[in-house]
């Protein structure tokens, strides 16, 4: 039996926090799959899934049971190792990024001074899930999906990093806690509105959500890179997408909307409310926007977003230099 010294208690509390955050992210991601379908139905003037349980509340249980009992099929023409590895990368890289997010002053897993860079690194790794999943399936549709994903990645990854550098320059740190602390007077969404707009675009592209879901366009690619996946392997891609939405929403809240800061309400409630609003925005975008062709997405990335972020960075730098006394 280990004695309960303050250090041991601190370690146990930290481990418990990490576990709660991990499970919370996975569970919320799973709940979102149903919530999205309900909301989409509502916005598009139809019912959505409303049969299982009162008002469709048990749909999640039904979906999970169905996914678990499906045959876990690996196509004989697939590259076995990579085929199994791809969904794991998809989910793990996004879940790992929750490490750096400070939920409230007391909650959060890691407090690194390279915090933001860790997210960018994980977003870079996350691409391999789509690439390898698409290639190892040995299917032409999946390969085209993977091809589109890599082309799209190269176009948005550059300006995603640049969009965040304005925030980093204003806060003077990559550490997310310090970035939140720097927003005490004014949320960064106002001085960094260009950064916010471009990062929102890049964030949607990271999660491969509508209108950037060309890699899995149902109509022409029949689900793209995960066409050959079944059972929980498909489930991991599916829930990974929603974990990505949660992650990007939480990150935008932390970087641009003041994190847990806000009057009257407790910090965790502020964080949850702001994140919820952004998640709704993600779902509303899917309900409202058509899907552009993927060369259009690439042109938008390189010719509109990249120059915008560069201008934003230039103006931010000039403003900071003017404001600091020499």
């Amino acid at each position: 039996m280990i004695p309960l010294t303050p250090e041991v208690v601190a370690v146990l509390v930290a481990m418990l926090q990490a576990l709660v955050i991990l499970l919370g992210a996975v569970l919320l991601g799973a709940v979102l799959t149903v919530a999205e379908r309900r909301l989409l139905g509502w916005w598009q003037d139809r019912y959505g899934p409303n049969r299982v349980g009162p008002a469709g509340s048990l749909q999640l249980v039904a979906d999970t049971l169905k996914l678990f009992f499906k045959e876990d099929w690996i196509p004989p023409f697939a590259d076995r190792g990579l085929f199994v590895m791809a969904p794991a990368i998809a989910m793990a890289s996004l879940l790992l990024s929750f490490l750096i997010i400070p939920f409230t002053p007391g909650w959060g897993v890691a407090d690194w001074h390279i915090g933001l860079l860790f997210f960018l690194a994980m977003a870079g790794i996350n691409v391999y899930a789509v690439l390898l999943g698409g290639w190892s399936s040995g299917n032409k549709y999946a390969l085209i999906g993977a091809m589109r994903a890599s082309a799209q990645t190269l176009s948005y990854e550059v300006f995603m990093g640049l969009a965040l550098m304005g925030v980093v320059a204003m806060a003077g740190s990559f550490n997310l806690r310090e970035i939140v602390a720097a927003q005490q007077g004014l949320w960064f969404i106002l001085p960094q509105c260009l950064g916010f707009a471009t990062f929102l675009v890049a964030g949607i592209a990271v999660t491969h959500r509508h209108p950037f879901d060309q890699p899995e366009a149902e109509q022409e690619l029949a689900d793209g890179y995960h066409i050959e996946y079944a059972s929980m392997k498909f489930g991991m891609f599916f829930i990974g997408e929603y974990i990505g939405i949660l992650l990007v929403s939480a990150l935008i809240v932390t970087l641009f909307l003041g994190g847990w800061l806000g009057p009257w309400l407790p910090p965790w409630l502020w964080f949850a409310l702001k994140t919820l609003v952004l998640v709704m925005l993600f779902i509303l975008l899917r309900a409202a926007l058509p899907r552009p062709r993927y060369d259009g997405v690439m042109r938008f990335g390189w010719k509109v977003c990249l120059p915008l972020t560069l201008v934003n960075l230039l103006v931010t730098g000039a403003a900071i230099l003017l404001a600091t006394p020499t």
């Binding site: 870079g124 790794i125 993977a146």
Partner: peptide, 21 residues
């Protein structure tokens, strides 16, 4: 972190992309 972002995250994506194609 930069090593992962630039090499593993961006340059290798290009490599894998070309070899896949």
């Amino acid at each position: 972190a930069l090593e992962i972002i630039v090499y593993a995250g961006a340059i290798m994506v290009l490599f894998v992309f070309v070899v896949m194609m």
